[in-house]
Structures are given as structure tokens and as C-alpha cells.
Design a protein around this nucleic acid. Structure first.
Lengths: 165, 165
DNA sequence: CCTTAACTTCACAAATTTCTGAAAGAAGCG
DNA sequence: CGCTTCTTTCAGAAATTTGTGAAGTTAAGG
């Protein structure tokens, strides 16, 4: 027996990782099917899977795949590509997709900020509550600028560690 | 008529802000009652409210207050204080509580990292999937260190802007 | 232009989550 | 030490979310 090539692609190992990692995402508030599909893509060899492959591997209906993928695309955790000359669609995780996902959270923060500004206006900037809201608002604005520069640093760090993948 | 003191503490304005801001939190995945309670605390004059006050203002049962506050305390978005010489409890938002909340997310990330390490081990570090998981892991480790320094910068920025509140 | 393959949408069933009322459990105060 | 006040726990009802089967839509290929 030669030493390696090890346990690669053992379906059961893959499934165990997929379900375990998905469970962690679920605990953090991500809906179940999207979590499972995302984990399956992460654990795939090419980083892409078709709807049919996902349905078979996870034992779920095409409808479930469709709904979950729509969710994942909306939060920018996967992208969808048309296989040229086929009606088949491939779903993909980019390794830098976390970047997209994080920055898309900014949309949500923007809405928080908007609500806070209205609150300051209607409660009065010179009231205790108004001052509290103002400071909260400042925190989010600060975070927003920081996330941008943070991502620049990540890209530098990533290239240094992995080469330009 | 003297000029100001304006629209302060108009219960309807307060309620409008509370429900609107809570709705934004809900859209981001925070459960409803915790969202409403947190918003009510933000909009309060002192930053503290009792269980009874929350129940009355939001028209919910003591049980709902209890459950929601337990949630909020767990994610460090509110702290609970005993009113000395009373069975009454006060719930409070600190203005720097966002710091606590963010760093407590790290616990979740830690578990993600753990799951990813197991995945690398069982799928093989020298496989395409293994490399993808490794890079994902590196991203989270990077984020973890960055959040720490980011919070230091926020405290500096905050003092500069608001004085040491 | 018709057939067929793939994805999406829709209505409904199932499972889960969320909130309430009621009862039990702590803790001050007489 | 018992009464009173406030909070928590529990079981169940209500609402929401989630996933399926089936029909509908789009586009490739003959």
C-alpha cells in the first residue's frame, strides 16, 4: 500500500463535513437549505455543482434547490453561470465571495443608519435618547469605512499567503 | 411661546421610531421581540427600562419580555441590573455595547473555524476542496485579528468625537 | 415548429418558532 | 415567618417559515 491519495472524495466524509458546517451556519441564523447548499459547494472539487447534483447529494427537491440558490445569490454567497449550449445551470462559490457577502451587508447597515437618522430627527438631537442614537449612528458609519479598508488588507494578505489565486 | 423643548418624548414619535428600527433589525435576522425591546431601550431617556415598562409600552406579556431579554443578554446587547432594595430589574443598553456584541460574534466564528479545520483534515489538505477550505479558514482568522484592532480604533475615534462618555 | 430538458413558480402540508396565560419560584418587607 | 411583588418557567395556541409535488416557463435540438 502506497502512502497517500488518502481518503479523498469519500462521500461519507464529504457529507459529514457538509452537514456539520451547515449546522454551524444555521446556528448563526442562516436558513437551513442555503446553509447546506453552500457547504456542499465549498466541499466540492471544482467549486461548482449543478442543480441536479445538489438535489441528489442533499436529497432535496429541485424546488428546494431553486429557492435556496436564489437566497444565496441575493446575499452574494454564490454566483450562477449558464453552461454554454445547455439548459443546465452551474452554481459556484468564489473564494473571494466572502468579500462580496460582507460588503452586501453594508446595504443593511445603510438602512439601519437611515432609521437612526429619522429617530434623531423626531426625538430631538439635544435629548438623551437623541444623543444615544447619534452615537450609535456614528459607530455604524465608522464600521462602514473600516470594512472597506479591511478588505483591501485582506487582499494583500491573501496574495502574500496563497499567491494570486 | 418659547422656542424649543420641541416634540420631546411624544409617545407616538417614540413608538414610530421603535417599530421602524426594530423592523430593520428583523430584516437582518434578529428575532422580533428582542428587536423591539432593544429599539425601545435605545429610544428611552435613561437607556434603562424595567420589565413592566417594556411590557406596557410594547403591549406584550411579562413572559415575552423575559424571553427576549434572555436572548439580548446572551448576545451582549443589553445588560441586566438589580435595582437595589427592590425585586425590580432594569435592562440597559450601554453605548459601547456594540463592541461586546461584535466580539461575542467571534465565538460563532471560532466554531466555523473548527468545522473548517475538520473538513480540511478529512477531505485532504492537498485536494482542491481542501485548499478552498484552507483559504476560507484563513479569511476568518484574518477577520478575527482585524476586529480586535478595529475596536481599538473605534474607541479612539469615539473619545475624539464625543469625549469619554 | 415541435419536442424535450432544465429551472422556476405556486399552492398546500408539515414542521418549527413565537407568544400568551397560568402557575411556580425568588426576594424584599412587615 | 408569611405576605406581597416581580420574574421565570411551562404547556399549548397561533403564526410563520420551510419544503414538496405539480404545473408552468424558457430555451436547446431535431
Amino acid at each position: 500500500m502506497t502512502e497517500s491519495k488518502a481518503v479523498e472524495r469519500d462521500p461519507e466524509s464529504v457529507s459529514r463535513f457538509v452537514e456539520h458546517f451547515a449546522a454551524q451556519l444555521v446556528e448563526a441564523g442562516v436558513p437551513r437549505m442555503p446553509s447546506r447548499i453552500f457547504a456542499a459547494l465549498l466541499a466540492s472539487d471544482t467549486g461548482t455543482l449543478t442543480s441536479a447534483e445538489l438535489g441528489e447529494q442533499l436529497k432535496i427537491s429541485p424546488a428546494a434547490v431553486s429557492g435556496a440558490v436564489r437566497y444565496l445569490a441575493q446575499v452574494h454567497l454564490v454566483s450562477r453561470e449558464r453552461e454554454p449550449g445547455s439548459r443546465r445551470e452551474r452554481y459556484r462559490v468564489h473564494s473571494d465571495q466572502w468579500y462580496e457577502a460582507l460588503t452586501s451587508r453594508e446595504t443593511i447597515i445603510k438602512r439601519w443608519e437611515e432609521a437612526l437618522r429619522e429617530g434623531v430627527a423626531s426625538l430631538g438631537a439635544d435629548t438623551p435618547a437623541g444623543r444615544r442614537l447619534t452615537e450609535t449612528l456614528a459607530f455604524f458609519e465608522f464600521i462602514e469605512t473600516e470594512v472597506a479598508t479591511l478588505m483591501d488588507r485582506w487582499r494583500v494578505h491573501r496574495e502574500k499567503t496563497f499567491g494570486q489565486g
